[in-house]
Lab assay of single mutants.
Amino acid sequence: VKKMAKAIMADPNKADEVYKKWADKGYTLTQMSNFLKSKTAGKYDRVYNGYVIHLD
């Protein structure tokens, strides 16, 4: 998940494709939050927020 999150950060155009894969795998927002937690607070906030919007 972190590898794909980094791919989104490097190229935001990949976001919809990645979010669809995550949704197809049934990842919940709680799971995504836990996967994307980082020592650098807020590092993956943009990715998480994008997934929230995708699921909505």
Rank of each mutant, 00 (worst) to 15 (best):
V1Q: 03
V1E: 02
K2W: 04
K3M: 13
K3G: 08
K3F: 10
K3N: 10
K3S: 11
M4F: 05
M4C: 11
M4P: 03
A5T: 03
A5S: 03
A5I: 06
K6L: 13
K6V: 07
K6W: 10
A7H: 07
A7K: 11
M9D: 02
M9E: 04
M9C: 09
M9L: 15
M9H: 05
M9S: 03
A10F: 09
A10I: 11
A10P: 03
A10Y: 09
D11I: 05
D11E: 08
D11W: 07
D11M: 06
P12W: 15
P12Q: 08
P12Y: 09
P12L: 07
P12A: 10
P12C: 08
N13W: 12
N13T: 15
N13I: 09
N13H: 11
N13S: 15
K14H: 07
K14Y: 09
K14W: 06
K14S: 08
A15Q: 07
D16H: 14
D16Y: 14
E17F: 10
E17G: 10
V18T: 09
V18P: 00
V18M: 08
V18D: 01
Y19L: 01
Y19R: 01
K20I: 08
K21C: 15
K21W: 11
K21V: 13
W22P: 00
W22G: 00
W22N: 00
K25Y: 12
K25N: 12
G26T: 02
G26F: 05
G26D: 02
Y27L: 08
Y27C: 05
T28H: 03
T28M: 01
T28V: 01
T28P: 00
L29A: 12
L29V: 11
L29P: 10
T30H: 12
Q31D: 13
M32F: 04
M32I: 15
M32K: 00
M32E: 01
S33E: 11
S33L: 13
S33M: 13
N34L: 12
N34E: 15
F35K: 02
L36P: 01
L36T: 00
L36K: 00
K37A: 11
K37F: 09
S38M: 06
K39R: 11
K39S: 13
K39W: 08
T40K: 12
T40Q: 11
A41P: 15
A41T: 12
A41R: 11
G42T: 06
G42A: 05
G42K: 06
G42E: 06
G42C: 08
K43R: 08
K43E: 12
K43I: 08
Y44H: 01
Y44T: 00
Y44V: 00
Y44C: 05
D45Y: 07
D45T: 07
D45H: 05
D45M: 07
R46G: 13
R46Y: 13
V47F: 04
V47M: 03
Y48K: 04
Y48M: 11
N49T: 10
N49G: 08
N49C: 14
N49E: 15
G50Y: 05
G50R: 02
G50W: 07
G50K: 04
Y51W: 04
Y51Q: 01
Y51K: 01
V52Y: 06
V52I: 10
V52L: 10
I53N: 13
H54P: 02
H54L: 05
H54V: 05
H54N: 01
H54E: 03
L55H: 02
L55E: 01
D56W: 14
D56I: 15
